[in-house]
Computed example of a mutant assay.
Amino acid sequence: MPGIQNSMLQLTIRIVQGTFRLDRLSQVVMDKPCILATTLGAPGGIYKCFEPFIEKHFTIITFERFVQRKEDFAAKIQALFVWGGAIKVDQNLLQSLPNLKAVVNGGVGVDHLDIPLINSFGIKVSNTPHVVDNATADIGICLMLASARKIVEGHNFSKFREFDGLSESSLGTDVSRATLGIIGMGRIGYKIAKRAQGFEMKILYHNRNQRPESEEKAVGAMYCASMKELLQRSDFVMVVVNLSPQTHKLIGAKEFAMMKPNSTLINISRGLVVDQDALVDALQKKMIRAAALDVTYPEPLPRDHPLLSFPNVIVLPHFGTHTMETSQIMVERMVTNALAALTGGQLPDEVKA
């Protein structure tokens, strides 16, 4: 024991004095499987508060460090952690990681990943479904309420007011007993319907497939076989679909023309599901009352984008899953999937092409 302690002391002294080479230090600490990720705490990276949990299981090689020293790290990396699409997973990257076993995505959407390409290298892909359902449903309801009751305008009035008394334009609209149209009644859409019940809303939904009658009755939802019917009848239209070739710009000029002049569009799916140019035109022509967006393209929008100039538009920076609790569970799930891949087991949340 004294010999080990003395060795560790000498190692510490050499590190402090700068006589111990950093490449040898790397070998000392890399006794755990290596993963590649953006710098934790950097823009687009996993938040630094989750670093201790990840480091219990893995040695983290930051992408920036990897680029500088590929020859040292390429063969050691066995999993790639993708958070927010900050790392471009293309053929060049995949070819440079000969022992990569999994691309582990934080979040549900994997439209930024070329899954057939990744699978062609014998690499598995996973995401974190179910984990995000409640937080995303919450943000949908939050956006609906904030837009209807002009919460942002009210806050700005209190903070910057130049006169006393609210103007007529500050009048909001009731959510209670209004009609909510949900486009995409999957797991998240169904949770939104359950929340909307608390406001005694009339709930319509459009989906590729109609849900069982028992599920419809449980949330008081009525199926619309055509999206046109839903758009024509809804006071609030909430889009909750996955991005795919079929849903790319699903809501465009034709759809805005079907909506009620006093209706609000709420998008919590993916930015490209809505044609933003058509949305700007619909707002300018007062074809709809307002819009509330958690997602856009690009993200974030340029400061001079027209959507940021409308007083009746709320734009969030993709906040849907942005809570401490949900983010922590997402990271835990990413670790679970990565560990399964490294041991040759079945990934609990594998996504197949």
Rank of each mutant, 00 (worst) to 15 (best):
M1H: 15
G3I: 14
G3D: 14
G3Q: 10
S7V: 13
Q10P: 06
T12W: 09
T12S: 10
T12H: 15
V16Y: 00
Q17I: 00
G18Y: 00
D23M: 07
S26Q: 15
V28W: 10
M30N: 12
C34F: 08
I35L: 10
L40Y: 08
L40Q: 11
P43R: 00
P43K: 00
G44L: 02
Y47I: 07
K48Y: 14
K48Q: 12
I54V: 15
K56A: 04
F58W: 06
F58C: 08
I60W: 09
I60V: 12
I61C: 14
T62A: 05
K70D: 11
K70V: 02
I77L: 13
Q78I: 04
A79Y: 06
W83F: 11
W83Y: 15
A86W: 14
K88I: 09
P98G: 07
N99G: 05
L100N: 10
L100D: 11
K101Q: 07
V103T: 03
V104M: 07
G106T: 14
G107M: 11
L113C: 08
D114S: 03
P116H: 03
N119I: 05
G122N: 03
K124R: 04
V125H: 00
P129I: 07
V132F: 08
T136L: 03
C142R: 14
R149M: 09
I151Y: 11
I151M: 14
E153P: 09
G154H: 08
H155M: 13
H155P: 10
N156H: 14
S158G: 14
S158N: 14
R161G: 13
G165Y: 07
S167L: 09
S167P: 13
S169C: 15
S170T: 10
T173K: 12
R177D: 10
A178T: 06
T179K: 01
T179N: 03
R187I: 12
G189C: 12
I192E: 07
K194N: 12
Q197P: 05
K202T: 11
I203H: 02
Y205Q: 00
R211N: 12
E213H: 04
V219Q: 07
V219P: 01
V219Y: 01
M222D: 06
Y223K: 00
C224H: 01
K228P: 04
E229P: 05
E229H: 01
F236S: 03
V240E: 11
V240P: 06
V240T: 04
N242A: 07
Q246G: 12
T247I: 06
H248R: 01
A253I: 06
A253S: 08
A257N: 12
S263P: 00
V274D: 09
D275L: 08
Q276F: 06
Q276P: 04
D277Q: 09
D281A: 15
Q284D: 15
I288H: 10
R289I: 08
A290G: 03
A291P: 00
A292E: 04
A292Q: 02
L293S: 09
P300Q: 12
R303E: 11
D304I: 04
D304K: 00
S309Y: 12
S309N: 09
P311M: 11
P311Q: 15
P311I: 09
N312S: 07
V315G: 04
L316E: 10
H318A: 08
T321H: 04
H322Y: 10
T323Y: 00
M324A: 09
E325I: 01
T326N: 11
V331K: 15
R333G: 05
R333M: 05
N337I: 02
L339I: 01
L339G: 03
L339V: 01
A340T: 05
A341G: 06
L347Y: 06
P348F: 15
E350D: 06
